[in-house]
């Protein structure tokens, strides 16, 4: 009887075998990344195409400086657990540094208190890097509310009252994206948007002067820093994309000619 009970006791598997294909992909991506980073370290030549939205960043802040108007930066509604918000902080660092160099006031309303405290540190350090710590005003990086339309109303109010020269919408947005972008347009600001929310991208493309589409936003920090190691990782992403494209074409052909059906890979979660 004791033996039978022992046999009936179940235990979860240590390694989830169903996720093995994902682990293989992750290891493969890791190897590509490390290869390109090492290549970049050795000084290999890397070509990265121009991203208009990031090229326009300096001009937008310069325009605000000429007009004597502030710059508004909106990091989206999502907290620090989103990679998009972390990418947004990288762009914020560059925007804050330029704003400090040009002596432009930077206003940043937040929907998440953790993002607010991190952003305060990022902006403070950017002002220090630019040699203008005297211009840093922590009150300009403020918390509004975590409520979606409460935040939208607050941010819209700030845009309409302050009439900024440029508005940066960089982060994860939901239905409020178009309301914010159109308000910025009506205030006469240049809008540079960027998001990984595919449902909101069409709104930004229609309403904003420049839009960072998905991965462009995630690449922004590396692109702006121009550091070879970071640029190397962008090349790795391109190679991974090429490999995925070849794999997709092969899978379609294999399925079409009835050789093998790889659709079981879609079941992995």
């Amino acid at each position: 009887m004791k033996l039978l009970i022992n046999l009936l006791i179940s235990a979860p598997e240590v390694f989830q075998k169903g996720k093995l294909p994902l682990l293989v992909v992750l290891v493969f991506l890791g190897i590509i990344f490390v290869y390109f980073i090492e290549k970049a370290k050795k000084g290999g030549e890397l070509f990265i195409r121009k991203i208009p939205g990031l090229e326009a960043l300096d001009d937008a802040i310069g325009r605000s400086a000429e007009m004597g108007k502030p710059v508004v930066y909106l990091p989206g509604l999502v907290g620090l657990n989103s990679i998009t918000t972390i990418a947004s902080l990288g762009i914020l660092r560059k925007v804050a540094r330029k704003a400090a160099e040009y002596g432009v006031e930077l206003i940043m309303p937040n929907a998440d208190p953790l993002v607010m405290t991190t952003a305060q540190e990022v902006v403070k350090e950017a002002y220090l890097d630019a040699g203008r710590p005297d211009l840093y005003n922590p009150n300009n990086i403020m918390y509004l509310t975590s409520d979606q339309f409460g935040f939208t109303a607050g941010a819209d109010g700030i845009i309409m009252r302050e009439k900024p020269g440029a508005v940066f919408l960089q982060g994860y947005f939901y239905a409020e994206s178009l309301i914010l972008a159109e308000t910025a347009f009506s205030a006469g600001a240049i809008q540079i948007a960027g998001t990984t929310a595919t449902t909101q991208l069409p709104f930004f493309i229609a309403a904003c002067d420049y839009t960072l589409i998905g991965e462009e936003m995630l690449a922004a920090s590396a692109y702006l820093s121009r550091e070879p190691i970071l640029l190397g990782s962008l090349k790795a992403e391109d190679l991974a994309k090429a490999v995925i494209m070849v794999f997709l074409i092969m899978a379609i052909l294999l399925k079409t000619f009835g050789i093998i059906d790889l659709s079981f890979l879609l079941e992995i979660k």
Binding site: L29, I83, T198, G214, L218, S233, E237, A240, K241, I244
Partner: peptide
């Protein structure tokens, strides 16, 4: 765009 975002997220995470 989704594939690009996923790879971008993996790249940035790494």
């Amino acid at each position: 765009i989704g594939i690009g975002i996923t790879l971008g997220a993996v790249g940035m995470s790494l």
